[in-house]
């Protein structure tokens, strides 16, 4: 039951993109087509879950025992960067089909602040997550990211056909649409 609450909270209530403002770059960058946004979501889910698992262990079994929590940022970003590299190499060897689908999105993920943000949030004292809850939290956030980016891509495909005033074309119109989507998500505010 607790896991379901964590997931619902992460997907709807504290949506990572629309309420926490993490992962905005890919959210605007790769949401022009539904198919690419699905690919990006898959890659994010893969890396986010794995990265949270690894950084959770590093934080609790290396950084905390040695009292070097201030190295959190630097060690986390290195973990995320090397993890992405490793996933890329392994995927290329093991599953060329999956690599074809996710490959081009993997390098972009290193600078996706959603990944680093979630790994930092997952070890926050006040949540008091254990390892499994942390991983579930990561999956929930990845699902939230997937839901919003795919929804958004669907809207943007339609937006292409609309006659928008010149200055508003492209990014400005997309941002206003994202704002309206965020407004809709506020309706979930008291869900859990």
């Amino acid at each position: 039951m607790e896991y379901i609450i964590i997931i619902i909270g992460a997907v709807f209530v504290n949506n990572i993109v629309l309420a926490q403002f993490l992962g905005i770059c890919p959210y605007l960058g790769v949401s022009a087509k539904v198919s690419t946004s699905i690919g990006m979501s898959g890659a994010v889910m893969f890396v986010m879950t794995l990265a949270t698992l690894v950084t959770f262990l590093i934080f609790n079994y290396i950084l905390v025992p040695f009292n070097i929590e201030y190295l959190q940022t630097i060690s986390y970003i290195l973990v995320v960067a090397s993890l992405v590299q490793m996933v890329e190499i392994i995927l290329k060897k093991v599953s060329p089909a999956l690599y074809q689908a996710l490959g081009i999105f993997l390098p972009l993920i290193v600078t996706n602040c959603a990944i680093l943000g979630v790994t930092i949030l997952a070890v926050r004292e006040d949540f008091g997550f254990n390892l499994l809850e942390g991983v579930v939290f990561a999956i929930g956030n990845a699902l939230g990211f997937a839901l919003t980016i795919i929804l958004f891509a669907g809207i943007r495909e339609h937006l292409e056909l609309v006659d928008v005033p010149k200055g508003m074309r492209g990014a400005p119109a997309a941002l206003v649409v994202a704002g309206i989507l965020a407004l809709a998500f506020m309706g979930f505010a008291n869900l859990v």
């Binding site: 629309l18 309420a19 403002f21 200055g167 508003m168 990014a171 400005p172 119109a173 997309a174 941002l175 206003v176 994202a178 704002g179 309206i180 965020a182 407004l183 998500f185 506020m186």
Partner: peptide
């Protein structure tokens, strides 16, 4: 609130 951030930025970009 969150929606205002997106909408405000949209108009500033325009």
């Amino acid at each position: 609130l969150a929606p205002g951030a997106f909408i405000g930025l949209g108009y500033l970009v325009a």
